[in-house]
Amino acid sequence: MLVLALCLYLTLFTWNLRTGYVDKLATHTGLEFTGAVLKPGKWVRDQVVEFWDHYIDLVSVRKRNDELEAQLKEAMFSLAEANEDKAEVLRLRSLLSVSAPAGWERIGARVIAHRLGVQAELESILLDKGYLKGSGVRTPVVTHEGVVGRVFRAGPYTSSVLLLTDPNSRIAVVSQDNRTPGIVVGLGPRSQLEMRYVALNAPLGVGELLVTSGQAGAFPKGLPVARIVSIEYSDISLFQKVMAEPLANLDNLEEVLLIGNTGDVEAFDQQSLDTQQEDDAQKQ
């Protein structure tokens, strides 16, 4: 067996020296074995490296996404703030377009509350100006659209305004075209106004503008108040039934103007004027 093995070895050795086949076979076999061992390891390494790189990229993307979301929220907040500032500037420009008549001065004020009182029985708003800042009792309150009402209670730094739609409100007016006088009376929240004590034969038209008459110095003369929407005649009344709509938007008030009397215009008690006009109307 030993001799046979030795002969076989010598034969293979001699044959390999002449042909080199065994060396080639051993070389190829070794290479394939090495490749078979290293290739799975390289694949595993590549997969690990690729996963790690993608994970790092995902972390960076997530971080960038969070940053972009934060910037978007900040931009949306800034845009909303800018839109609010723009709306306020437009409102203030409109208010500044209102010029005070001679003997009167403009005082700007902000609305800080609506409908005050027990069970909100009064159509009113609360302003951030009191008598120390020129918001005295009976001071007219307007916007660029028209008359809002007048102050009926004033503190040092705040004041309450009775809106012209309140049933307790009385404003002496005159029609702009026909110069027919009357008293505009409120009928309640979100209701029309009534122009009272207009004689049956007094000239008046639907769509005509009603402005303050300036009587008694309670309001400057010529401030727009309302527009006539209907006129009815009755056989049992001495007066026309005239309905009007306020020109000022009373539901969305944010800033208003107080028209203060500088003292050059003589002021009287408006309530006394209204009472006198009612007595005169009843006598007629």
Rank of each mutant, 00 (worst) to 15 (best):
K129W: 05
S99I: 12
L17S: 15
W43N: 15
F13N: 12
H144W: 07
D280H: 03
Q192A: 09
K39I: 13
A216H: 08
L238E: 13
E67C: 01
L17C: 13
Y131P: 04
D46S: 12
K73E: 02
E88T: 10
S78R: 14
R227E: 06
D166V: 06
N261F: 04
A109G: 01
A82D: 07
V49F: 11
S234N: 12
T29E: 14
T27G: 11
D235L: 08
P167H: 02
L223G: 00
T165C: 07
P101Y: 04
G263W: 01
R115D: 12
E278Q: 08
K129N: 03
S175P: 01
A172G: 03
W15M: 12
Q270N: 10
E278M: 06
L200V: 08
L223T: 04
T165N: 09
P156L: 13
D46N: 15
L58M: 08
E278D: 07
L10Y: 10
A109N: 03
A82W: 07
K42Q: 14
Q215N: 09
L31H: 12
C7Q: 14
K24H: 10
S160D: 13
V225S: 02
E232F: 05
L6C: 08
F13L: 11
I107Y: 05
V242C: 04
R62F: 03
K241Q: 12
R170N: 05
G103H: 03
E194L: 02
V137H: 09
T139I: 01
V137R: 15
D269V: 05
E81Y: 08
Q119L: 13
T19K: 14
D53S: 13
P203G: 00
V22D: 11
D274V: 15
G207F: 01
T139N: 02
S97H: 05
A226H: 00
M76V: 09
A36S: 08
L2N: 15
Q277K: 12
P181W: 00
Y157H: 14
D274A: 15
H54M: 12
L92K: 15
R62N: 05
S234F: 06
T19H: 14
L79R: 09
S213N: 08
V147R: 03
G155W: 06
G108P: 06
A5C: 11
L31W: 13
V142L: 01
Q284C: 08
I236E: 09
L122R: 15
D166N: 04
I228R: 00
N178L: 04
M243S: 14
V89H: 12
E88M: 09
G222H: 01
L126R: 06
A244K: 02
K133N: 14
L238P: 05
Q270G: 09
A218W: 05
S272D: 10
L164K: 02
K24Y: 06
S191Q: 15
R64V: 00
E69T: 00
T139K: 00
D235T: 14
G186I: 02
Q270I: 11
K221E: 10
D128W: 09
D274K: 06
W104F: 06
E208F: 00
G108K: 11
L90Y: 07
I183W: 03
S94F: 07
N249H: 14
E74T: 04
S169I: 00
G136F: 09
G207A: 00
L193T: 00
D177Y: 10
V185D: 02
